[in-house]
Write a protein that binds this DNA or RNA. Structure first.
Lengths: 201, 201
DNA sequence: AAAAGTCCATACGGAAGCGTATTGACTCCT
DNA sequence: AGGAGTCAATACGCTTCCGTATGGACTTTT
């Protein structure tokens, strides 16, 4: 079930007066989340963006949280699957770790969504998803660190450290203008991080 | 001006029917922020907590954002001053770094406030404060890393890495139950982080 | 003691959200 | 053609905030 998160054509491309599906609302919700956070995903706001009114929304969803939950479910499936799939072919653990770190740089939209969800971690619908995702990724990292030669205890700590660095970097980079990096500054930082956190191959 | 953030006695201790000052409102705002985030700092909510009504609030402050701004100002003065003051007496840079990392563990309320502010970093009043604070602390860290023997470029990167790890750790620890650590697990992690990020003394 | 200043209560208006109820329009099936 | 099902528009009530207006009580000043 490798359903791409963007497999449906944007509404605009499908003729102006098309009817909407639940999926369209979810895509719109993801866009809004990426741009302005979970709190900005309001029914009427979203309806205006999609060119319809609330009447449509409450046909597809029973209430707002149902949209949030449904949206997060699709995001979780896509995002974790996608993240791991891109590096599973690399057999050398050290190289794989480096690739993970480098790849986590590209997909900007994905990061924006992730950052938005982090900020909404007190929301009862969001919290369990983020707990699950964070734990899975840290566990995965720990396994790879161990495969790369670290002892099990150190691997767990290093995974937490690396993941914390990722989460914190998202905050600092996406939220604060003054702490942003230039393109080359970013590449430099990335290499520094890799050298610091990944045991030498 | 080392005014402690808690130098005023709690309202309850000062006799029941005492009048309030702007400072009382700011303290209440900090408490609310630590507990439920910046968004939870609503005028009427806070008034109820303090045992008065809105009428009082709009005597002391012109509008809600004025309270937020005023509260952040006092927090910034206290928090950064306090954070640096506690370690400035240590002259050995490596040892000082270790102390910084270890001390940043204790003051729980301070962390909760910091985490709440991070999550509200899109708020126009909060953003500039957090940008300033983050930049200052990263710059400070970079200087100490350099004093500890790293070359200037590496020191800047390492400072960013360490600060990101701190910010990310706050998120993971304070928000997600499942990613929390036991007391000794925490100490272990801390030492692992110190060994990984601080050059050997 | 009278006046001025300080702090709070109460009542009100208005904006944003959520969710419901009802009706309309359009499509598809029989 | 007529009915069933699908999607959307409109209008409404409800809650939760913000901010204003006004008056009362208590304290300090003169």
């Amino acid at each position: 079930m490798t359903t791409a998160l963007r497999s449906v054509a944007p509404v605009a491309e499908r003729g102006e007066k098309q009817r909407l599906t639940a999926r369209d609302w979810e895509e719109g919700a993801l866009d809004l989340m990426a741009d302005e956070g979970v709190a900005a995903v309001a029914v009427e706001t979203l309806a205006k963006r999609l060119g319809v009114t609330k009447g449509s929304f409450y046909w597809h969803f029973s209430h707002r949280d149902a949209l949030i939950a449904s949206t997060l479910k699709r995001w979780e499936e896509y995002d974790t699957h996608n993240a791991i799939a891109r590096v599973e072919s690399i057999e050398n653990p050290g190289v794989r770790l480096r690739e993970i770190f480098r790849l986590t740089a590209r997909d900007v939209r994905s990061h924006r969504i992730y950052a938005a969800l982090l900020k909404a971690a007190d929301h009862p619908v969001v919290a369990p998803v983020m707990e699950r995702v964070s734990k899975e990724r840290m566990d995965y990292l720990a396994r790879v660190f161990e495969q790369a030669g670290m002892d099990p205890v150190a691997a767990v700590h290093r995974a937490r450290l690396a993941y914390s660095a990722y989460v914190g970097f998202l905050q600092l980079t996406l939220q604060f203008r003054s702490t942003r990096l230039s393109q080359e500054g970013y590449e430099e930082y990335l290499e520094h991080m890799i050298d610091t956190l990944i045991p030498a191959a």
